[in-house]
Simulated scan of single mutants.
Amino acid sequence: MTINQTPQVVTIAGTDSGGGAGVQADLKTFQARKAFGMSIVVALTAQNTLGVQNSFPVPCDFINDQFNSLAEDFKIKAAKTGMLADREHVECVVENLKKVDFGPLVVDPVMIAKGGHALLKEDAIETIKTKLLPFAFLVTPNLPEAEVLVGYPVTTEEEMKQAAVDLQKLGVNHVIIKGGHLETKEAKDYVLLETGEDYWLKTKRIKTIKTHGTGDTFSSCIAAELAKGTSIKEAIYIGKQFIQGAIEEGLFVGHGHGPTNHWAELSESVEEIIE
C-alpha cells in the first residue's frame, strides 16, 4: 500500500475568520497548487475585511499536541509560519521545530494586519531574529517588517539589498524583500539566494484595495512548491505568478480590504531582472 507519497505541507499560523488571510488563505493556496495542506493553529482571530476585532493565542500545550499529532502520522515536506502572536508562542514553535522534520521552513514574519491590528507583540521581535530565523530556509518580509528585523529604514532599492544581506547573516538561506510599499510605477521584489545570486521580480502595479492576505498567499504558494520538490528559484517565481494572478483576478467580498482570488490563474506578467 502506498503511504504518504502525496506532497504534504503545513502552515503554522493564526486563523482568519474572514477567510482571506492566515491559515484559511494558506490552505486554499496549498490546495490550488496541488499539495495536501495541514495546519497548526497558533492563534485565533475574529476578523473581516474591515480589520481584526479580537485575537486569542492558543495555549502552548495544545500547540505541542498539534505538532506531535502531525509528526506521528504524516510526511510533511515543507512548512511555513505566519502569525505567531508573542515571544512565548514563537519560542513554543521553535522548540517544536527542533523535534520534527517538516522540511524547509518559509517564514512570513507577520506583524501588523491590513487594518493596523498588531499580530505580533514587540517582545517577540528579538526571539524571531535569534531563534526562528536561523531555522528559516526562506524569509519573506515586506518593507515595514524588514525595517523592524534589521533596525534601520528600508525605503529604497539599495536599502532593500542591504536588508537582504543582513537578514542572511541571521542564518536564513534565502531572502525576499517585498517592495509593494515602494512608491514606484512598477512593483519590485528583491531576491537574494544562498548562492549569492540576486535579482528582482517586477510586475505591473494594480490599483486595488483587494490585497488582504497577499503575504500569506505568496509565502504559502512557495511552501507548497517546495513540498512538491520544486527548486527554490522556481518556487519563488511561481509564488510571484500566483499572487499576481490572485490580485489581477479580483474578488468582490466584504466592505474593506478584500481578499485575493485563490482560484486565479498564474499571471504571465512577472518579469525577472538581473542587474
Score class of each variant (00 low, 15 high):
residue 181 H to E: 05
residue 54 N to L: 08
residue 238 I to Q: 05
residue 53 Q to D: 13
residue 136 A to D: 06
residue 263 W to Y: 15
residue 195 T to E: 14
residue 255 H to D: 12
residue 143 L to G: 01
residue 119 L to G: 04
residue 107 V to H: 05
residue 223 A to F: 04
residue 107 V to C: 06
residue 45 T to K: 02
residue 111 M to F: 11
residue 51 G to M: 07
residue 185 K to E: 14
residue 197 E to D: 13
residue 259 P to H: 05
residue 165 V to K: 14
residue 216 D to S: 14
residue 271 E to H: 14
residue 269 S to C: 01
residue 22 G to E: 00
residue 31 Q to R: 12
residue 225 E to I: 09
residue 38 M to V: 06
residue 103 G to H: 10
residue 199 Y to N: 10
residue 272 E to K: 15
residue 131 K to H: 14
residue 152 Y to C: 07
residue 99 K to A: 06
residue 215 G to Y: 01
residue 159 E to I: 05
residue 43 A to R: 00
residue 204 K to W: 03
residue 139 V to T: 15
residue 20 G to T: 09
residue 12 I to G: 02
residue 196 G to L: 09
residue 93 V to M: 10
residue 47 Q to K: 03
residue 204 K to A: 13
residue 74 F to Y: 15
residue 30 F to C: 02
residue 148 V to I: 14
residue 225 E to S: 14
residue 99 K to Y: 00
residue 185 K to N: 13
residue 38 M to Q: 10
residue 262 H to C: 04
residue 176 I to N: 02
residue 27 L to R: 02
residue 156 T to K: 04
residue 34 K to F: 15
residue 86 D to L: 08
residue 246 A to F: 01
residue 113 A to L: 02
residue 134 P to W: 12
residue 223 A to Q: 09
residue 226 L to C: 12
residue 190 Y to R: 02
residue 15 T to L: 05
residue 140 T to D: 10
residue 195 T to K: 13
residue 107 V to W: 05
residue 88 E to I: 14
residue 267 S to K: 04
residue 255 H to S: 13
residue 87 R to S: 15
residue 233 K to V: 12
residue 94 V to T: 09
residue 221 C to K: 00
residue 41 V to D: 00
residue 142 N to R: 03
residue 238 I to R: 04
residue 200 W to I: 06
residue 255 H to N: 13
residue 35 A to V: 11
residue 244 Q to Y: 03
residue 8 Q to C: 13
residue 33 R to W: 10
residue 232 I to R: 06
residue 149 L to Y: 03
residue 77 K to H: 13
residue 45 T to P: 03
residue 118 A to Q: 15
residue 268 E to F: 10
residue 105 L to T: 05
residue 257 H to W: 07
residue 170 L to H: 09
residue 10 V to N: 02
residue 230 T to L: 08
residue 110 V to A: 02
residue 214 T to C: 01
residue 176 I to L: 06
residue 66 Q to L: 09
